[in-house]
């Protein structure tokens, strides 16, 4: 069992998740350290997405707890967990397709400022100058300003992903979860995304990243955990993982690039 040290932000403690007879996660123990990018890799069906779903409150673990800064997340609903500082980027971008890019970015900023529920009827959106300015800055940062008034549903897939990332980052989360942020991207776009994520990394934000693309993992991660059949089979620095024979057998061997 991994001991949570002082600089642990998120501690996944002994989490089990079973679906019927299937052990999707077994004895999963992870300590995510402050300011680090922790990659979780593993073959399809290893339980990577299940793990993220447990952290954000979409699934309740069968056993075990998830602790963020000493507070237990397990049993809380997704909006409470987000309010505590967990933001997630999904494998297929989850945005508001019917709202403009601007509104897409403003909404999370409101959640951050006003909490999970507030009847704010007397102000118009235009009069919320602080939030509008904050949203505009991040939209410019992410190179989305040419489409600021476009309906988000009309964006290209790459832009949708970038928008979703902007939506998460405007909340300045304690920890950011990224579920295959480059899945389905061309090499060029993958590299752009890596640069973007490196930029975020330099701000000292703690991140968990699930990824298939080893190029992405080895250029971003400080630490890598390998998940296979619901268990963590190895953990270490990218170089250690690359050299680990167990990992090669379970994972790298079958899909090495």
């Amino acid at each position: 069992m991994v001991k949570a040290s002082n600089n642990t932000v998120l501690h996944v403690a002994d989490v089990h998740k079973t679906f019927g007879g299937l052990h999707a996660l077994a004895d999963v123990d992870l300590a995510i350290e402050e300011g680090k990018t922790h990659a979780i890799i593993g073959p399809n069906g290893a339980g990577k997405s299940t793990l993220l779903n447990v952290i954000v409150g979409k699934l309740a673990p069968t056993r075990g707890t998830v602790v963020l800064d000493g507070e237990v997340l397990t049993g809380k609903s997704p909006h409470e967990i987000n309010q505590m500082g967990v933001a997630r980027v999904f494998q297929t971008p989850e945005i508001f397709p019917d709202l403009s890019v601007f509104d897409n970015v403003m909404a999370p900023a409101f959640a951050k400022r006003d909490g999970s529920f507030k009847i704010n009827i007397f102000n118009s959106l235009q009069s919320e100058k602080d939030i509008a300015q904050e949203a505009e800055e991040i939209i410019v940062d992410f190179g989305l300003e040419p489409m600021i008034n476009t309906h988000a549903g009309a964006l290209s897939r790459g832009h949708k992903r970038r928008l979703e990332l902007a939506m998460c980052l405007i909340q300045k989360p304690r920890i950011l979860l990224l579920d295959e942020p480059t899945a389905g991207m061309s090499r060029h776009d993958t590299n752009t995304t890596i640069d973007l994520l490196k930029k975020i990394k330099s701000t000292g934000m703690t991140k968990i990243i699930i990824e298939h693309d080893m190029h992405v993992v080895f250029s971003l991660a400080d630490k890598v955990s390998v998940l296979a059949q619901g268990r963590i089979i190895a953990e270490g620095s990218p170089d250690e993982i690359r050299a680990n024979p167990k990992v090669k057998e379970a994972y790298l061997g079958e899909s090495s690039e």
Partner: peptide, 18 residues
């Protein structure tokens, strides 16, 4: 805007902290 957000993607609203 929150109501429109619910119409557009209620799950995302939850994961956004609403």
């Amino acid at each position: 805007m929150m109501l429109k957000g619910i119409k557009s993607n209620e799950d995302r609203m939850n994961y956004t902290g609403f």
